[in-house]
Design a protein around this nucleic acid. Sequence first.
DNA 1: TGACGAACAAAAGTCAGACGTTTAGCGTCG
DNA 2: CGACGCTAAACGTCTGACTTTTGTTCGTCA
Lengths: 255, 255
Amino acid sequence: MSAPGSRRLEYERVADELRTMIVTGELRPGDRLPSEGELTERMAVSRGTLREALRVLSTQKLLTSARGVGGGTFVAEPSTDDVADYLQTSISLLSRSRLSVGQLLQVRTMIEVPGAGLAARHRSEADLDRLAATVVVAGDAADGKEVDWSTNSRFHVLLLQATENPLLEVVARPIFTVMRDRFLRDRAGADFWRRVADEHAEILEHVRDGNPAAASRAMRVHLTALRDTYTRIDVSDLDAIAGDGIYGDGIYGDD
Amino acid sequence: MSAPGSRRLEYERVADELRTMIVTGELRPGDRLPSEGELTERMAVSRGTLREALRVLSTQKLLTSARGVGGGTFVAEPSTDDVADYLQTSISLLSRSRLSVGQLLQVRTMIEVPGAGLAARHRSEADLDRLAATVVVAGDAADGKEVDWSTNSRFHVLLLQATENPLLEVVARPIFTVMRDRFLRDRAGADFWRRVADEHAEILEHVRDGNPAAASRAMRVHLTALRDTYTRIDVSDLDAIAGDGIYGDGIYGDD
DNA sequence: TGACGAACAAAAGTCAGACGTTTAGCGTCG
DNA sequence: CGACGCTAAACGTCTGACTTTTGTTCGTCA
C-alpha cells in the first residue's frame, strides 16, 4: 500500500500531520497555530523545512499567514472561489491531452440544464435583477456596445448562483472558462453573440416565471446551439444527455 | 483592482512566473527546469525562497522533484486522480459549513443519472467484467462476506470510468467519498448494503444490455433510495432534478 | 573480456543563524 | 487630545554549510 515514494520527506510528514489535525477538526478555522519558532521545536525540524510544510498547506488554502504583531499562521477554510480557481487551472491542463471540448460540454450540460430548472425555483428578486442586467446589455449588441464572453460568462455564473447550490458554480464555472480559453479564440462573431443574447433572454424569461421545465429546456437549446460553435464534438453523446424530451413539460410539478 | 494582499511576496512572484510559463506552454510536461542553483540566479532570490515557490507548484502537481544525478525539477501534468484528491479535501471542508448533504446528492444525481446512460453506451467488455466483480461480491452479503462502502464505491467509480469521460469521475468521486465520511458513519446496516447490491445489479443489467434509458432510470431509483439513508435532505429539490419521468423510456433512441 | 563494486559528482533535502519587514500597541510629546 | 515614534512579536528573506540520494565512471578481479 506504500506509494513508490514511500521514503518520506520531512516537510511532507509535517504537512501531513498538520493537515490531519485540520481535516479531523482538531484544529478549527480561525485557530491560530503556534509561532514558527515553537513549531520548529515541536515538529523537530528546521525553520526552512517547517516553512515548506506551511507553504504546502497555504497553497491548499488550509492555512493563511500574516506578519506583524497580531500576525501568525491561522487555519482557514477554502472558499468556493478558491476551489473553482484551482479546478480551472487543473481542467485547463487536463484539456490539453485528456479532455475534448465535447467532454467538457457534456459535463456543462449535465450541470446547467437541471441547474436552470433549480434557478427557476430558487431565484430571488436580486438574482433576477442581476441576470436582467447582463441580458439588457447583450440586447444592445446591435448598437455597437461591447457584448462578449464576459457578459455571457456572467449570465451563466449568476444563473448557477441562483440555484443556491454552491457546488454547481464550483464545478461549472471552471469548465466554461476553459472552453473559452482553449476553444473559442476569435471564432465567434457578432452574429454569434446576438444569438446568445436572445437565448439568454428566453432562459431568463422562464426563470423569472418560475417555470423550471421551460428554463431547463431553453438551456438545453442554448447549449445545443453552442455545440455548433465548438469543434470536435461527439454529437450523439450530447444528444444522449440533452436530447429532446428529457426535460419536457410537466416534470417539475408544483410542490 | 489590486487585492488586499497587493504587497507581493517574493516566493509568490517566482511561483507565478514559473506557473505562467507552464500554463502558456512555454514549459511543457517532462521538461527539466534548471537546477535550484541556477534558478536562484535567474530569479534573483535565495535558495530558500526559491524552494518555497517550487513547493507551491509541486503542491499543485505542476512540478515534481527528484534527487540524485538524473534528478532535478520537472514539469508535470496533473492526473485526474490528483485533481480528484484535491477536490475531495476541499469539498470535505466546504461541506462543514457551506454544503448540505442534500446539495452533494443533488450534484451526484446530475452527474450519475445521465452518467449511467453514457456508461450503457460506451462500456467495454472489460468494464462489464470489473463491474460484475463488485456486484457478485455484494450478492454474497448473506454469506457473511465483507460488503461495505468500498464495494459500493468501486461500483460507482467503475461506472463513471465506463463513460469514457474522465471529468465525470473527477467531479463525482470526491462527492460520494465525502458523503460517506461525513454523513454515513455507522448508520448503515446489513439490510442497507443488501439493498444497495440489488440496485447495483439492476443498473449493471441495463448497462450490459446497452439500454441507456433503463440504466439512467435505475440509477435514479438507486440515488433516490440513498436519499432516505442520508439526513437533512431537501426532498423537493432532489425530485426536481431526478423526479419520475425525467429519464423515462424512449429518450435514448437508437443512433 | 565481462561483471562486480567502490569512488565520484550532481542535484535535491535539511539545518543553523542572522537580518529585514510588517504590524499592533503603547507611551511620550507638542 | 491627537499625532508621532518606539518597541516587540511574528512572518519573510538571505547566506552558507552539511546530508542524502542516485546515476555514472572507472578500476579491480575472476
